[in-house]
C-alpha cells in the first residue's frame, strides 16, 4: 500500500520506495511519516530549497554498476563550511542507496549493516581505519569529519528528517575511487560503502535544465 492522501491537504501522495518512511508533501510541504496503514503529519517543512547549480532533481535517472536508479528524495546537510545534498536513490533491482554531490564530486553508496564501527572521538583525519567489511575487511583513510544538521528535505526518505536533525558524517576514501561514509545520528550509527563517480559515468537523464549551460 503505497498511495495515501495527504492528511493536511488531501492530495494523493505516493511512496515509490517500500523502504521510505518519510515524505515531504510536494503540494503543501507537510512532513508525512508512514505508519502501518496510514500517514501521520508531523508538521510543515518551513524552509524551501534554495536552488543551487545542481543538475540533479527528483526524478533524475542514472546508472550505477549496470543498475538503473531514480532519485526519490533529498536531504540537505549543513556543516560549519557550507552544505551538500544527499539524494535518496532507488534502484531497479529493489535496492536503495544514496547519491551525494559535494564540491563537484559524485559519490554513490549503499548501507552495509552489521559493521563494527569506531567511536567518532577516536577518528583523526588522514589516519587509516580497518573495518570488518566484505571478505577480507577493508582499510580506509579518514578524509573528513563533519558535524551536520539537516536543513531541508524533499521527496521521500528512509528515515525521519526534520529540520535540525543532528549528526556526524565521516567520509572515508580508499584506492580505486572507493568511497565510504559513517553516519552517527540520534537514531543510530550507519555505514555506507560505494564509489566516487564521474558525471559521465552516471549517464544521468531527466536532469534539471541549467540556464546558460
Amino acid at each position: 500500500m503505497n498511495e495515501f492522501s495527504c492528511p493536511s491537504c488531501g492530495a494523493a501522495v505516493n511512496f515509490v520506495s517500500k523502504a521510505s518512511v518519510f515524505m515531504v508533501c510536494p503540494y503543501c510541504r507537510s512532513m508525512l511519516v508512514r505508519q502501518d496503514v496510514n500517514v501521520e503529519n508531523i508538521g510543515k517543512m518551513a524552509e524551501t530549497l534554495d536552488e543551487n547549480t545542481t543538475p540533479l532533481q527528483l526524478g533524475t535517472e542514472g546508472v550505477y554498476m549496470d543498475k538503473r536508479f531514480a532519485l526519490a528524495g533529498r536531504v540537505r546537510l549543513a556543516w560549519s563550511d557550507g552544505s551538500w545534498d544527499e539524494w535518496y536513490a532507488w534502484f531497479n533491482d529493489g535496492s536503495h542507496g544514496w547519491l551525494a554531490q559535494a564540491q563537484g564530486f559524485y559519490m554513490v553508496s549503499f548501507q552495509v549493516p552489521n559493521v563494527n564501527l569506531p567511536e567518532p572521538s577516536t577518528l583523526i583525519v588522514g589516519n587509516r581505519i580497518d573495518l570488518e567489511v566484505g571478505f577480507d575487511g577493508r582499510s580506509y583513510r579518514v578524509d573528513d569529519i563533519k558535524k551536520t544538521t539537516c536543513v531541508v528535505a524533499e521527496g521521500e526518505l528512509p528515515f525521519k528528517a526534520p529540520k535540525g536533525r543532528n549528526g556526524i558524517s565521516v567520509d572515508l576514501g580508499g584506492p580505486d575511487d572507493a568511497f565510504a561514509c559513517i553516519e552517527y545520528s540520534e537514531d543510530g550509527t550507519r555505514f555506507f560503502e560505494g564509489r566516487y563517480m564521474e558525471f559521465d559515468e552516471l549517464k544521468l537523464s531527466f536532469m534539471r535544465i541549467l540556464d546558460g549551460w
Partner: peptide, 28 residues
Amino acid sequence: FNPYHGFRWLINDHGHWNFTTMIKDDIS
C-alpha cells in the same frame, strides 16, 4: 567550474600551464 562536472584548476607558473583535477583516490 562546470555545474555538471564540478571543479578544475588552470595553473600558470611563469608561462607554463597545467590543467589540474583534484583526486579523491587514496593514492598514497
